[in-house]
């Protein structure tokens, strides 16, 4: 728990100093502003103070729950994150759930039909989608299904079509989970305790779903943490391709705008999310595998 806090703090510090090290500032525009205005703005947002002071000032503010306002729009950052995360969370949540469910099912099918047609087909598909990056897939999906075939409408703020972005985001983790499930399932099927279960007279289906699957899922659970990370970073790109106004695209725009408080807030938010995801995967891990204890 303490380690988690330290992680977030370190990420926070690195981001803060790195973003200030990049040349340019929030008020550098093509159209030059009046120097007096810039000076006033800099003073208003404490940008005239030494970097270290700024950092501690910032820490003090967020400790009080104040993430400041966006330098670009002047809106409260808490509100922006809340609003855009709602979209991103739904997108990422559906993608994660789809990847886990489909991945486990496909992995089981592949393991049980080893070296036969379904297995080979699944291996082909999962290899293919581990190799295709999400931004290529996103662009391709958009082009084929929304533009050329026009089966699925393009994303708009009024009408949110999650299908294509979810596919773009879920394919890689799904393929990965499929392969993971297949190998660990095959491994588990060859274990002595599976033979014991058969020798007791347990039905084949029950042998697979009770005795094998639960053991096979242990390695899959360890992937849940990294998967959340993948979906977060993947959403940065995918949201931009589909012009979804989620947290990912807000993050990208804030960087190109040098919107310092916005960058900081989104980074911290994503870091906390990551840490939480890892924590949750550890907890599930312990629930599934009684041999794990936290000392």
């Amino acid at each position: 728990m303490l380690l988690a806090l330290a992680t977030v703090f370190i990420i926070c510090a690195i981001t803060f100093f790195a973003m200030h090290a990049i040349p340019g500032g929030p008020f550098n525009k093509e159209k030059a502003l009046d120097p007096a205005t810039i000076a006033a703005l800099n003073e208003r947002f404490h940008l005239d103070k030494p970097l270290l002071t700024q950092f501690f000032l910032y820490l003090k503010n967020i400790a009080a729950g104040d993430f400041g306002v966006s330098l670009k729009t002047g809106r409260d950052i808490g509100a922006i994150i809340k609003e855009s995360f709602a979209i991103s969370a739904k997108l990422g949540g559906i993608a994660a759930a789809a990847a886990i469910v489909a991945g486990i099912i496909l992995g089981c099918i592949a393991a049980l039909t080893r070296n036969r047609l379904p297995d080979r087909l699944i291996v082909f598909i999962s290899t293919l989608f581990t190799a295709v990056p999400s931004f290529v897939l996103a662009t391709l999906l958009l082009l084929v299904f929304s533009i050329t075939l026009a089966w699925v409408p393009v994303w708009s703020a009024a009408e949110r079509h999650y299908l294509l972005p979810v596919i773009a985001l879920a394919m890689y983790p799904m393929a990965y989970i499929t392969r993971l499930t297949k190998t660990s399932m095959l491994d588990a099927l060859g274990q002595d305790y599976v033979r014991t279960a058969r020798a007791k007279g347990v039905r084949r289906l029950l042998v697979i779903f009770k005795h094998t699957l639960r053991n096979a899922l242990i390695p899959v659970i360890t992937y849940v943490g990294p998967m959340v990370a993948y979906i977060l970073t993947g959403s940065l790109v995918v949201e931009n391709v589909f012009t979804i106004g989620g947290l990912g695209s807000k993050f990208i725009t804030s960087i190109s705008n040098r919107d310092y408080p916005m960058i900081m807030a989104t980074t911290i938010f994503l870091a906390v999310l990551m840490v939480l995801a890892n924590l949750i995967s550890d907890l599930i891990y312990k629930a599934v595998d009684p041999r794990i204890t936290f000392d």
């Binding site: 279960a197 005795h211 053991n215 242990i218």
Partner: peptide, 13 residues
Amino acid sequence: FQDPMTSLNPVFT
């Protein structure tokens, strides 16, 4: 079976 260490399922009581 021969090996009691691996013949019982580790995730069930």
